[in-house]
Nucleic acid binder design. Structure first.
Lengths: 342, 342
DNA sequence: TTGAAAGCGCTAACAC
DNA sequence: GTGTTAGCGCTTTCAA
């Protein structure tokens, strides 16, 4: 079965020119309403399906927005993509997604593949790229948006927040509660750039409080899973049994750490205080609930979409849209006296 | 900044014809190695990026594989897409993803949009579609794969399992442990077709055991979140306080139900037995671990990819690839005597 | 191994 | 509101 019905066939069957069929399939074009109705009906009867590939070439518009994310299997990035897709689809734009697997070399390849499809704009996660990837983005001739970060030297637009600065808020929160022996559970420092930023921010904040920051547990290459969080907690307790609080790079590892405490009969927050990052659903539902940071992933996606829609309509100056993550204090760091109903 | 460097420019700069440049960018074509190297170098220096849109039109190949999933934010579907993408990208095929939000009308729109891009194959989640969506798929002239289900009347190929039959295994497991007052927590029966199948399977299995199946809690429209699972558990305990076990439509709702028990001081499994579905990571890490069913989401994706790659190379007869989900018995249904180390 | 001519299925641009 | 002409940037096809 070969697809061979083209506009020409529809035009012939409807008794009009190809151009009129073309117009009938577009919005805001001047076609007599009855003519359009006839054409669309004829097209449907013939089983005609509009061919975007031809339209793309001729009009030099694809209505694609290219996006790279480290992993599809991460609720935070998924939320960003969901917010992005939803807004863009209202504008007739379609997301073209590629995964980098937390690997800059793979990101470079993904970016090149995506640019070949001639997207209207490209969104990349993070602000660190290979030299060639950066050159590709700079020369792409389309809006470039770096997300989930605040790069020191942005390529184009930015929608994100400082992963390092956000950790300061968390350390301040714990220090204010009187905790001093605070550990950090994170991922491989090389691959997970946002995780590395958080760790750096953690260390800076600890130093600012005059606290020692030698309780750093590496939980392996990103993405850090719940299980790896649990294993990291195990290692932490072996190395530093007197730890009072642990800051985890994400809610998933934090939840893993929490379960390890539960298995050992360590009470959270009485015996161990735990914090996460990301405001994943689990943080708000597990027992106790997890203190975390909400970076508003969906809002990031919606802001990016808004930026793209506006920029495509009317090219704009470079925009840096900062998202203000919010500390969510919950059961895992609450003073016990306040814990009646948890 | 306009992208205007074409193959013509590269050809001129390299002193060859456009056709030779075209060949240099393809694999397995006869170009003198040195010529190819020169061309690629010249292209890179000029900042040329291959234009797929033109190639697609002329060659009538896009190397797209279209996929619809209910939601991007679901680890099971994400795993399927990850497995699919990974295998396909090795073959130079790129996934073009669209979300249906558990809505058949939206699925129809997504399918139409995707087909306009002229994909090499299309994968849809589930076996229920609008009449028009089905007609579009049947007339698409490309391989169609229905996944995550075993439709009674498949459109083309199938990679999936029976959601209903799988629940039988779960009910058998609980019945074998002597439980009789077993409830079901699921989603809106209309929208979540796989959830509805599971519920139907649950009811059939209960009847087969001579057990009453009037403990059915509807937790709202899909996707059912952890919170909705917790709320459903709350309602269940209000309506049927003597319930012994509860079968949840997914691990997320099961975990929510578990936390509700924890908040109430109900011990799992001693006071309440809980099961989930999906073998999400959380099921294997929470305390107690959750008895669930592993439908091997990643394997589904890999099988689909394998099917597509083979079918594109050499058109094949309709294939029904059944996946055998596996019961994973864990702490939430284990006899207490066996629970020493949980 | 390389090149020349033709054209994929649409739409921009212009005419009426 | 509708039609005609040309051509988007590649690859198919055929020839050398």
């Amino acid at each position: 079965m070969q697809r061979s019905i083209t506009m020409k066939d529809v035009a012939r069957a409807a008794g009009v020119s190809v151009m009129t069929v073309s117009r009938a399939f577009q919005k805001d074009t001047s076609v007599r309403p009855e003519t359009r109705d006839t054409i669309l009906k004829v097209a449907e009867d013939l089983g005609y399906v509009f061919d975007s590939t031809a339209a793309n070439l001729r009009s030099q518009r694809t209505d694609f927005v290219a996006v790279t994310i480290p992993s599809i299997n991460n609720a935070n990035f998924a939320d960003t993509v969901a917010g992005l897709s939803e807004v863009l689809s209202n504008e007739g734009l379609q997301v073209l997604l590629a995964y980098t697997n937390y690997d800059m070399a793979q990101e470079e390849r993904a970016i090149e593949q995506l640019l070949r499809r001639r997207p209207e704009a490209i969104v990349v996660t993070g602000g660190k790229h290979t030299v060639r990837a950066r050159r590709l983005l700079e020369g792409a001739g389309i809006p470039v948006i770096e997300a989930w970060d605040l790069p020191a030297n942005p390529i184009g637009h930015v929608v994100g927040f400082s992963n390092a600065a956000t950790m300061e808020v968390m350390v301040n929160h714990l220090a204010a509660q009187g905790h001093e022996r605070i550990a950090f559970i994170g991922g491989d420092v090389v691959a997970d750039t946002r995780g590395a930023d958080r760790r750096r921010g953690f260390m800076a904040a600890m130093k600012a409080h005059g606290l020692s920051c030698d309780r750093l547990i590496e939980a392996g290459p990103p993405p850090i899973s719940m299980r790896e969080g649990a294993q990291a907690m195990e290692r932490l307790l072996a190395l530093h049994p007197d730890t009072q609080a642990v800051v985890c790079v994400s809610d998933l590892s934090a939840f893993g750490a929490l379960t390890e405490c539960q298995r050992r009969g360590l009470r959270v927050p009485q015996d161990m205080v735990i914090t996460g990052f990301g405001a994943y659903e689990i943080a708000s539902i597990c027992v106790p609930t997890l203190t975390t940071v909400n970076p508003f992933p969906r809002k990031i996606g919606e802001e990016i979409a808004d930026l793209i829609v506006n920029t495509i309509k009317k090219p704009t100056e470079q925009q840096i849209r900062k998202i203000a993550p919010e500390l969510v204090v919950a059961g895992s760091t609450e003073k016990v006296s306040e814990m009646r109903n948890r």
